[in-house]
């Protein structure tokens, strides 16, 4: 009895450690915030602060030389009257609308059949994944070389073998953007295949066996079982790939190196325009306004994903 009393009094004494005066719950809270503090400070400083600062800059005429002056919505008015911006805005969505569906369908088909391949499965999967590991700039330069006229370009070499006239590819506004999109699709394919295969593997085999006993054909199983059960995977990849194509930059910059975004702005995406406005023209306020537009588009797509993925 005497012992327990003395133990209690030591615990309450002012000389006791700080931790011992807190309840178990309080101690857990302190630990949790302790661990959370570092990333919060880090993200706050390098992510949230610059983002908010960009919002502010978009309402100014900052050009690195003079202090920023508030000019209201002038940058945005200029933006939507600028034919180059509208062209670039269209280009960006063209990358998205060509690249995203094709890359998704292609990666799903490859994953669907690769899942059934037993021979050299790992090797084939590694081959598809390889482009994802390669530097984007290196990829772009290899593809740029592919698209060259004969005798350098292999694609035109192949076409001439088949007695098809040589194509200009990157040299004409009509073909340049699709040609660059192909590179983008190819670069992202490996990742999407891996994700799709993981999704396919997660569907229990008995679902398919039960369907076979119920008499469903291959196509009906795909439509009624595989695709609905793969929905979360598909939505994730739609968003992931959409964001990728909306932010396309390095392949364009490297493949049209002599005139980035050319010919005639036909391949210029939003990010490249922002880069040029900011770091070639030093029109920081205007570049910030363009960035805000891109930010809003990406935000809407991400929110759409959350909406579609919500638990019903």
């Amino acid at each position: 009895m005497a012992e327990s009393v003395s133990a209690r009094s030591t615990g309450a004494a002012p000389t006791g450690r700080v931790g011992s005066r807190l309840t178990l719950h309080q101690r857990r809270v302190v630990w949790a915030w302790g661990f959370l503090a570092l990333p919060i400070l880090f993200y706050g400083w390098i992510r949230f602060y610059p983002t908010l600062y960009a919002f502010w800059l978009s309402f100014t005429d900052w050009d690195l030389m003079r202090p920023a002056q508030f000019i209201g919505l002038e940058n945005y008015q200029r933006l939507f009257a600028d034919p180059v911006f509208l062209k670039v805005f269209g280009n960006t969505f063209e990358y998205l609308l060509i690249g995203m569906p094709i890359s998704l369908v292609l990666s799903f088909v490859i994953a669907y059949y690769l899942d059934r391949v037993r021979v050299l499965h790992g090797f084939i999967r590694a081959l598809y994944f390889l482009p994802f590991l390669t530097t984007a700039a290196a990829l772009a330069w290899v593809w740029r070389w592919f698209y060259q006229p004969v005798p350098v370009g292999v694609i035109n070499g192949l076409l001439s073998h088949l007695h098809i006239p040589a194509q200009p590819f990157l040299r004409t506004p009509a073909q340049a953007l699709p040609a660059i999109t192909v590179t983008g699709i190819w670069a992202g394919l490996g990742f999407q295949i891996i994700i799709f295969m993981a999704g396919l593997r997660a569907i229990p085999a008995t679902y398919y066996e039960a369907a076979r006993i119920d008499g469903l054909g291959e196509w009906a199983i795909l439509r009624k079982i595989t695709l609905p059960l793969l929905r979360p995977t598909t939505i994730f990849l739609v968003v992931f790939s959409s964001i990728g194509f909306l932010r396309i930059f390095d392949s364009v910059f490297n493949m049209t190196h002599n005139d980035p975004g050319g010919p005639l702005n036909s391949t210029k995406p939003l990010v490249l325009l922002i880069y040029q406005t900011a770091f070639s023209s030093y029109d920081m306020g205007y570049a910030a306004a363009q960035t805000v537009v891109l930010f809003v588009i990406l935000l809407v797509i991400s929110l759409l994903q959350l909406f579609l993925l919500r638990d019903r």
Partner: peptide, 14 residues
């Protein structure tokens, strides 16, 4: 024309 019931039920969540 047989029917089968599986251990993990194999009923579709969607």
């Amino acid at each position: 024309n047989i029917a089968m019931v599986f251990q993990n039920y194999a009923i579709y969540p969607h």
